[in-house]
Write a protein that binds this DNA or RNA. Structure first.
Length: 521
RNA sequence: AGGGGCGUAGCUCAGUGGUAGAGCAGCGGCCUUUUAAGCCGAAGGUCGUGGGUUCGAUCCCCACCGCCCCUACCA
């Protein structure tokens, strides 16, 4: 066991020995407390000095020492517990020789318990008048600097435990995240949904377009994929009669890392039989407004420089969004009819690109030959996606980029699919589920024929078989919990809302391993 | 993957072509209502790593490593 800073580590071990020599256990097993620091603040925060003096009630509170001021034969410290702190006052006359020796051997970061009663100091701060000190646990390593806290953003991610102690905002974000998940469960439970858990290890990675992680099961000797989406299993459950079903859990996608992407991320997915995508759009308007209100207290939420208004959601078809956000400088926007015509989206994209390249604007880079629907999707992403700051429901996606959605009855080139965009981020994706097994098989086979890393290599025949047993008309949706948390906590990096975001392992550089390290006997 | 930025004491940061400083934390001393407690004293660094230029590099140049931001893939 060797950790920096060595000198302080050794110093604190020495003090731990001295504490034991005083007769305290080094690692006691429990402490019976009557209040948390937060309880004391709540209960006595407004009390008058005279009242506290008149009705002395014994309190027992535990916490981590986050400030420490020793002044000869007395001293102050703050104990932090449950995210709140309370001051304690330790006087040699009161706690006795041994108790005060213990107090002198304490460091920032140690856990202690105290027994005493509440009083107000000269300066009016609510404090515990300590009658007895209990040693609970030694911090052998020091806390981050007390004024600036842990400012190194990499260390905040790598050593989240220190970040949570030192950065109040960080603790609040994760408390809020827990509330968001709780509210979501409440919302769906109240509507007759049941929560399930489906496999995270899939023999065929389906339900989304993404590169999967591969793993291996030894006994069965088969490769498995960490799931990229729970979609196909949840719809099997809808076939099985769980008419309203949801799951909140992780998906894994072997893609890049950015402020909006972590290789593992949390999705809420839910399916509702006998509904279509319009029903879900309405449900979403309620859901987002209700979440904003429940979490932030208002349907208007501050996000950076903007105020996001969740009380209403703009609705645009994908083609309308292209027309609406087409930059005026790039010439006349294409007409809806042009975008709908064969080859129209490609021609519009080329027109846009020739302007964009001449004007250093981001342009649409197509890889390989694209179908009309793929051109439409590409053009949307290039001209409109980042403009969708206020909550927007974007709907009617091209069939070519929506392999699991049901087509529109009057236009098979489009599907009954929508996505919700907020702050330029895709937050949710939902659609009327394709439940025609023959059409589903055709689209799976078309995908496989097209190939690529992000497409399953194999037909999910069991899923098609399940559809053959009859999936009722169903609408389903996935909501990115990490991104939703970003919106509701004014966080601008997904790493700020994931406790342990993926980072390159510490000290494992890409350099050549030591020459003999892997030597076989 | 491409572009930009950053890397100095445990933490937060200054700084200079002549081998380094502050505050906090830690150590010794004083201090029985302090609160970024205070005062006195001492200690703490291969200046991310490896090369190069130079009489001399923490500083200039190159490469590499790590992180952050933007772009690309993606949700």
């Amino acid at each position: 066991m060797q950790f920096e800073p060595r000198d302080q580590f050794e110093q604190r071990q020495k003090k731990l020995g001295q504490i034991q020599a005083l007769g305290f256990e080094a690692f006691p097993r429990e402490f019976r407390w009557s209040h948390t620091a937060a309880d004391l603040v709540r209960e006595y925060g407004l009390a008058k000095a005279a009242d506290l003096e008149a009705a002395k009630r014994e309190v027992r509170v535990a916490g981590r020492i986050v400030s420490y001021r020793l002044m000869g034969k007395a001293g102050f410290a703050h104990l932090q517990g449950g995210g709140k702190r309370v001051q304690i006052y330790v006087k040699k006359d009161v706690v006795g020789e041994r108790g005060f020796q213990l107090f002198q051997l304490l460091d920032l970061g140690d856990h202690i318990g105290v027994r005493g009663h509440m009083f107000l100091t000269k300066t009016g701060e609510l404090s515990v008048w300590v009658e007895e000190l209990f040693f609970l646990s030694k911090a052998l390593l020091p806390l981050p600097e007390k004024w600036h806290g842990l400012a190194d953003i990499e260390l905040r991610y790598r050593m989240r435990y220190l970040d949570l102690i030192a950065t109040e905002k960080s603790r609040e974000i994760f408390e809020t995240r827990a509330r968001i998940v709780r509210e979501l469960r409440k919302f769906f439970d109240a509507r007759g949904y049941i929560e399930v858990e489906t496999p995270m290890m899939h023999p065929i990675a389906g339900g989304a377009t993404a590169r999967p992680f591969v793993t291996h099961h030894n006994t069965l000797d088969i490769d498995l994929y960490l799931r990229i989406a729970p979609e196909l299993y949840l719809k099997r459950l809808t076939v099985g009669g769980f008419d309203r079903v949801y799951e909140i859990n992780r998906n894994f996608r072997n893609e890049g890392i950015s402020t909006q992407h972590n290789p593992e991320f949390t999705m809420l997915e839910f399916y509702e039989a006998y509904s279509n995508y319009r029903d879900l759009m309405d449900l979403n308007e309620q859901l987002f407004a209700q979440m904003a209100e429940a979490i932030t207290g208002s349907t208007t939420v501050k996000f950076g420089e903007v105020a996001l208004d969740f009380s209403r959601m703009q609705r645009l078809t994908m083609r309308e969004a292209i027309v609406k956000y087409w930059p005026a400088a790039a010439g006349a926007a294409p007409a809806l009819e042009e975008l709908a015509a064969p080859g129209g989206a490609q021609r519009a994209t080329e027109r846009y690109n020739s302007w964009a390249k001449a004007n250093q604007a981001p342009y649409a880079a197509a890889k390989g030959n694209l179908a009309d629907g793929e051109w439409t999707g590409l053009l949307f992403e290039t001209v409109a996606e980042d403009k969708l700051v206020q909550p927007t429901i974007l709907y009617d996606f091209p069939t070519e980029i929506s392999p699991l959605s049901k087509q529109k009855p009057d236009d098979p080139s489009l599907t009954e699919r929508f996505e919700i965009y907020v702050a330029g981020m895709e937050i949710a994706n939902g659609f009327s589920e394709l439940n025609d097994p023959a059409e589903q098989e055709r689209r799976f086979l078309a995908q496989i024929a097209q190939g690529g890393d992000e497409v399953p290599k194999q037909l999910d025949a069991d899923y098609v078989r399940a559809l053959c047993h009859g999936l009722p008309p169903t609408a389903g949706e996935g909501i990115g919990i990490d991104r939703l948390t970003m919106l509701l906590t004014d966080s601008h990096s997904i790493r700020d809302v994931i406790l342990f975001p993926l980072l390159r392992p510490e000290g494992n550089s890409h350099e050549e391993p030591p020459a003999q390290a892997a030597g076989k006997a």
